[in-house]
Design a protein around this nucleic acid. Structure first.
Lengths: 168, 168
DNA sequence: GCATATTAGTTGCACGAGCAACGAATTCTG
DNA sequence: CAGAATTCGTTGCTCGTGCAACTAATATGC
């Protein structure tokens, strides 16, 4: 587990990046672990993928949105959203309605069945979040969310990726 | 862009999850945007994948590690690390050395060429991080990192995923 | 000491997801 | 008003990545 003392190449005395403190690395690790833990709820018990879960959650909150709205909001590729919507539609959880004012896009909304799943899922997701942030004081929780928002705005400005260009 | 006023189904008056404040969602969005922005550096200019970049960064800091160490530390699947190591080895950036005390595992380290890439990459990655956190005060930066660590520890405890079980 | 269980790493398989090209609809421009 | 450019969404292609089964090596237990 420890490198041999006879190693000809040793770690530099002053590593240029300390991963334990390198924010992009830490954010990815944290997001991955949190995501995996949360997936236990929506994947195993409701058979939803990450994109599927995000679509259900977005429509659950907003009622009616377009695929583009969801993609922009959640920083997902439009093809990812397209396929996930098709899957949800096939399962009878989402319906499309044409927008007569702009027939390129479609309004998406949950079916009663989709709403039922959302209603069952939401309290559990919130309970999970509560359990997660319970290691922080209320003040810390509030501060953390504010800092996340600040960083997200900054990161979207730095990202040349079209996925990140539009605001939420 | 706004749902029609004649919609038969409207958003509930009190949505159960507010995605703008739902931490797992916000963390994933933030990590994705940051990751995409950082990838501009290591992907386009050094042709590294995310796993490849993580392996180079880990070996750059620690000198010698096993594939398992890297996978655990970065919450990556061992097959992901295995293939990324093979690719880096093929490009002459990483070498393997057998561990005579336990011949199941192998020590990994950067070649001089791999070290050159790390040395070129590290300052740019740190500059990117500086640009990212520049929207926070030094005190906020420190506080944010501490809260990330707290949450990561908690999330790893909540995650039943074997990838997240071991500590860093 | 030998059978069993565990661990490090690899690989076949399948699937999720990004890219790019496309069709359809709308908007911009001169 | 006509042609060019843009936008929404879909789909073929490719590839990264997780899962599970496997080999080889080591640790455990009777």
């Amino acid at each position: 587990m420890t490198p041999p003392s006879t190693a000809r190449h040793v770690a530099p005395a002053a590593p240029q990046i300390v991963l334990e403190q390198f924010l992009p690395y830490r954010l990815n690790v944290l997001a991955t672990v949190v995501s995996n833990a949360l997936a236990q709820i929506y994947a195993e018990r409701f058979d939803l993928t990450i994109p599927g879960w995000r679509i259900v959650a977005t429509l659950g909150q907003y009622g009616v949105r377009t695929a583009r709205d969801i993609a922009t909001h959640a920083v997902m590729h439009k093809s990812t959203v397209s396929r996930a919507v098709s899957a949800l539609e096939g399962r009878g959880l989402v319906v499309r309605r044409p927008n007569r004012d702009d027939r390129r896009e479609e309004w998406l909304e949950l079916t009663p069945e989709g709403r039922r799943i959302y209603d069952a899922l939401a309290p559990e997701a919130l309970a999970f979040e509560d359990g997660l942030v319970s290691v922080l004081s209320p003040a810390e929780q509030k501060a953390f969310l504010a800092l996340v928002h600040k960083l997200e705005g900054r990161a979207r400005a730095l990202a040349p990726n079209p996925l990140a260009e539009a605001a939420s």
